Every structure is written in C-alpha cells, then in structure tokens.
Computed example of a mutant assay.
Amino acid sequence: MRKKALVCQVVVLALALMGFGFAKWSDSVVVRATAQSGSVKWGIFDESVWQLDEGTDWHSEMEGGMLNYDQDTEGKDVGSTSVEVTDANEDGVKDTLDITVSNAYPCYFNEITFDVINAGTIPVIVQIPELTWMETESELESGVVYYLCSNGSIISEYDDGFVSPEENGAVIEVMFQDNVSAQQHPGEVLSESICFHVLQPAAQNDQYSFSLSIEGVQWNESPIPAGSVVD
C-alpha cells in the first residue's frame, strides 16, 4: 500500500515538473463587440430651388386666397425675388432660404419650391418650419396664412389681436405647404413650398426680406411624432 502511495507521489511530482497544474478546470472567452452609430445629414438640396417668377410678374387678387393667381396680362416684369440657400446654424448643411422681394407692389405673387434630402443613414422627421421677419421668429403651420406686419410682428387670423390684414399693418402674407411631420428615410427626397403675396399697405419701390428655416430631426428624438401634422 505504501508502495502504491509512493508511486502516486512520484507521478504527481513528475507532472508538476512538466508544467501540469491541478487547479480547478476553467477557461475564459473574450467577447469584443463593435457598435457603429448612424449619422444624420439632412438639408435643402441647393439645385432644386425654383421660383414661379422667372419673367412676367404673377398676381393674386385676394387676401388669404393666394392660390388663386395668374400672370400679369400686360406682361409687366417689375417685381423680382432673389433666393439664397444658407447654413444658418453652421452645422455644414444648408437649411435656410433667405428671400428678398424687390420693387414690391400690391398683388405681386410668387411661389418658391425646394427639395429636402435625407443624405444620412437614419430616418428623420420633418419639423415645423420657422420664419424670421425683421427681429421676429415664428413657426409656420402648414396651410395657414401668416401676415408679416410693418411693425415687425408675424400674426395669423387665429391669433389674439388679429383684426384684418390692413388694420394690423400687414405688408406681405405667406403660406408654407407640404410634409411637416413626415418621416423621411435615408436617400429620400421630399418637396416643399412657400408662397407669398404683397398686400396693399406695402410701400412703393420697397424691398422686403424674410427667411425660412427648416429642420429634420432623428426620428426617435423628434419633438413631434411622425404623421402628427395633417394639412
């Protein structure tokens, strides 16, 4: 019996010298995971900007009826509109239309259309656009007529204090249309438009400037849900 025990001790010692260990059986697995986030890149497609006034002036005769318009029957080309696409928040993507109306006169009408493109890898929600007039900023609900007043205010017929365009001193009425709250997928292009109409209180041979800014926000961070705004 002692001989067997001695043999076992010798074997154990030999194995120990050969580098074998008798710790608990164990092994380990190392997992390395890589997470890659998507990117948001959204803005106005510069080459898509187009305006109705490309020559003969267009007129609209009715306040609040801006979609009833036609070209000047005498072929006058007096009023003009310039549009510049800019990056207002300096994030590297153009998001703002700077609009200047020159030689404005009552009834002058114009419509500006443009495309917004989702050039990123994440779906976005198109936000409510914001209009800047003088020192005032205001959100524009799609399909609602807003009045730009000579005192620098922006008002709609639904606001407290609205009486009429004339009595509120409105010089221009504007309306934004299309795609507010739409979910826009990567690579998708959507068309937007803003139209405006110069009103009777406008000064002769004057120049008016206003800006329209629009934003696309990552779908799961948008303050407005997809499809929540219906024209």
Rank of each mutant, 00 (worst) to 15 (best):
A5D: 13
L13N: 10
M18I: 06
G19T: 07
S28V: 04
R32A: 07
Q36L: 12
G38W: 02
S39Y: 09
W42I: 12
G43I: 09
F45L: 15
S48L: 09
V49T: 12
V49L: 11
W50S: 09
Q51G: 09
E54N: 10
H59V: 15
S60W: 05
E61M: 10
M66D: 05
N68V: 03
Q71N: 05
T73N: 06
E84P: 01
T86H: 05
V93R: 07
K94P: 00
D95H: 02
V101R: 02
Y105V: 03
Y108V: 00
F109H: 12
F109A: 04
N110S: 00
I112R: 01
F114N: 09
D115H: 04
I122Q: 13
I128G: 01
I128C: 07
L131R: 04
W133K: 10
M134D: 05
M134F: 09
E135F: 10
S138K: 15
S138Y: 03
S142M: 06
S142R: 05
G143Q: 06
V144F: 00
V145H: 03
I155T: 12
I155L: 15
Y158N: 11
F162A: 01
S164H: 03
N168V: 10
G169P: 04
A170T: 07
Q177S: 14
D178I: 03
N179M: 08
H185N: 13
G187F: 02
S193V: 02
I194C: 08
I194S: 06
F196C: 11
Q204A: 15
Q207F: 00
S209Q: 15
F210S: 04
S213G: 07
W219Y: 14
A226W: 01
G227Y: 11
